[in-house]
Amino acid sequence: MADRSAVRVRDALESLDSLVPLLAANAATVDREARFPAENLDALRAAGLLGLLVPEDHGGQGLGLADLVTVAQRLAGGCLSTAMILAMHCQQVDVLVRHAGPRLRAELLPRIAAGEVYLASVTTEAGTGGHLLSADASLERGGADGAATAEASIRFRRDAPVVTGAAHADGFLITMRDGPDQGEHAVSLVYADRADLDIERYGAWNPMGMRATESGAVRLAGAIRPDQVVGPPGGFRAVALDSMIPVGHLAWSACWLGAARAVFSALVRHLARDGRTDVASPLVRERVARIRLDLELVSAYLGRVREEVERVRARAAPCDAPSLQIHLNSLKIAASELTYRAVDRMVQLAGMSVGYSADSAIPLERALRDLRSAALNYSNDRLWTATGGLCLLDRKVELL
């Protein structure tokens, strides 16, 4: 079994040797045009990476969180937008693997493993903003005569101001209030196939960074079966704490680190061969060291939090301990702020022509714009206040 796992990991990593240069070659174009990198997604499908976390018995690669973190870092070195697209897809896959019912798992996971289904996440809402654990729009249950039956359709309509890749997704995981008479925190997660939805895009997509994620606004309407509710009705909070939050924070942080690491590597090589920069200067060396320290801190904290999540999952325990939630929130905050700071320092060190130009051979300008979004991708302001509340519950102060 261990040998088979090692082979799967090796094959996945070897596929990156050709994928990363492809993503890097397309990155400037898709950023400039603010369009979804469909050609990159096609390459990920062909490489089997949509099924990275799908278990082997459903046709997937059956890999784990350590492999996801590695793959996300490597891909982000080519194109951060594409890496985030895959990271968020894998986040949704993990939710399905751990919380979907038998029928939905049997139908959907093999299609994901075969590269047929790219998943988009629908969690934002005009009334709730980006608050993950609340919802406004509600599910409507019952048959044509109003009587609820086992096979009755569940209907819904949903507006979402930010959905990554909505125009290209094959399936959607959507947060909804469990019913019209339920409170905003009685949230259900539902799966809907693209074929069963009416999808309307509205608004424009012309952001400063992460332009190739094409995270525009959509209106969704459709009907699903009762077994397409993922996790218990109204019980999305448990699903989020167990899967969506930990995998999201790990994968996002890996992407941000991978993007910053790649441009730092390119900058170090540039400094080594560029005769105009005095690499013996104490100021240059101090600036390089400070950049490296930020990346080292993110890398180390990412590794330790990932190990902690893996230990908790190995015990089949919930990921709801205050200390673990603090560590996950701290990872997201630290990764988003330190990687951005590192690239900002790289721009200063590289100077106007290399660091600030959109036409530079080192894409520091794009990395700076992209990483500025990291603190906004589930707002750090919200995480700071949530973490403060958790700190008051963790009276033993269980540090990582």
Rank of each mutant, 00 (worst) to 15 (best):
A100E: 12
V97N: 09
V97P: 13
V305F: 04
S357C: 15
A47C: 07
A167S: 04
D42Q: 11
A266L: 14
R74Q: 02
A375D: 07
G101F: 15
R237W: 13
A367C: 09
L13E: 13
P318T: 15
M84Q: 07
V7H: 14
G64D: 14
R155C: 02
R98W: 13
P233G: 07
G115M: 15
L392Y: 09
G127P: 01
G258V: 05
W384D: 03
D17N: 15
R285C: 09
G51L: 01
R74G: 02
G231C: 08
P207F: 11
A72G: 06
G355Y: 01
D193T: 02
Q73G: 06
M352R: 12
T128G: 06
E107M: 05
Y340K: 08
S357I: 11
R341G: 08
T164Q: 10
T387Q: 15
L267K: 07
P180F: 02
S299N: 11
G231P: 03
V305C: 03
L53G: 00
S253D: 02
H89F: 08
V268K: 01
V162S: 04
T385L: 13
L267I: 03
D359R: 15
P161H: 11
T175M: 01
Q228W: 09
T82F: 06
C391H: 06
S215G: 10
H58L: 02
N206C: 10
A317E: 08
T339S: 11
V95F: 12
V397A: 13
S81Y: 09
D67K: 03
A240T: 08
R273M: 05
V288G: 04
L22M: 12
F172I: 00
D344Q: 11
E307Q: 09
M244T: 08
D145E: 09
V93M: 11
R155M: 02
T213A: 07
D394L: 00
G146W: 10
I154L: 00
R103F: 07
V163H: 08
P37Q: 00
